[in-house]
């Protein structure tokens, strides 16, 4: 955030245009979202207190969330879940990124892999759960496979679409300036693809968290056992707190990847997954 310090020095010079511009940027990035989230939170609280009987007020949910942290339940669930998530996601990235790049760059590879990848992409992984549990049992292998299957095809196909979009004119320019075939890959296609890799990784992370939750709900493990337990005793406040934590986990990982992207591939941002 270099330009965060910039307005201060410019403001000292009394340069008004420079100070108003970052102010609106600040409005866009901080105040408006704050207002948006705040208004939704208020609406939730009021609806729960005044109108909808079964809905737990947000304040109770947040209190339950604090309790979840204090009792350590949250960390137990996180400690159990994160390794599965990391393994499955890592595997999905290790397979999906090379495959997506290959399919995007080479029409031969695309023709070979397109039908199986697209078929698996449209297959509901949830419908495979009963079968996967029968084959793998409830061990770590089951979760890793579920997370992997949830994420890998989204990573592959997002990346393929992105790489295909890389402007042909860029490649031509590279050729005109005398780049070799390898040089075009190294200096044109790879940097131009990197933002798409970032977008694919973000989307993949979101999908991986969904896979983890689906797997754990099916086996009543980790967050799944928490949620099922709260359901049994009607503790909707704690259950909603867990849902908020899972949402934060998903957004947090995607946001962290976004920050990495701004650091290492700042030349072009591709929307997708979480903006």
């Amino acid at each position: 955030m270099d330009h965060a310090s910039e307005p201060a020095t410019l403001a000292a010079d009394g340069s008004t245009p420079a100070t108003t511009e970052p102010m609106t940027a600040m409005n866009e990035r901080v105040r408006y979202p704050l207002f948006g989230v705040g208004s939704l939170a208020l609406a939730w609280e009021l609806l729960a207190r005044l109108a909808v009987d079964g809905l737990t007020p947000l304040s109770d949910v947040l209190a339950a969330g604090v309790g979840l942290v204090a009792s350590g339940e949250l960390f137990v669930a996180l400690a159990a879940s994160l390794p599965k998530l990391a393994l499955g996601y890592g595997l999905a990235v290790a397979v999906g990124v090379p495959l997506g790049l290959l399919m995007g760059f080479s029409s031969t590879a695309d023709a070979l892999a397109d039908t199986p990848v697209t078929t698996l992409f449209v297959t509901s992984v949830a419908s495979l759960l009963p079968l996967l549990i029968a084959v793998f049992g409830a061990g770590i292998g089951f979760y890793v496979v579920v997370v992997f299957l949830f994420a890998v095809f989204h990573v592959t196909l997002t990346l393929r679409a992105g790489v295909r979009d890389v402007d042909d004119a860029l490649v031509e320019t590279g050729r005109v300036f005398g780049a070799s075939r390898l040089g075009v890959y190294r200096h044109v296609l790879l940097p131009a693809s990197l933002p798409h890799v970032a977008a694919a990784l973000r989307l993949g992370a979101v999908r991986a968290v969904k896979g983890m939750v689906v797997g754990e709900l099916w086996v009543y493990a980790g967050f799944g056992s928490l949620l099922h337990g709260y359901q049994r005793y009607g503790q909707t406040d704690s259950a909603l707190a867990v849902v908020l934590v899972l949402m934060a986990l998903s957004v947090g990982i995607a946001g962290g990847l976004g920050a990495l992207e701004r650091r290492y591939a700042p030349w072009h941002h591709v929307e997708g997954g979480v903006r």
């Binding site: 948006g36 009607g234 849902v243 998903s250 957004v251 997954g273």
Partner: peptide, 26 residues
Amino acid sequence: AAAYDPAVDALYAAPVVALAPLFVVW
């Protein structure tokens, strides 16, 4: 959009299945 995009994105990214046990209660 500036106000509600982040909330929509967060909900889009959230694992909706996690709400299933709650739906049973509700």
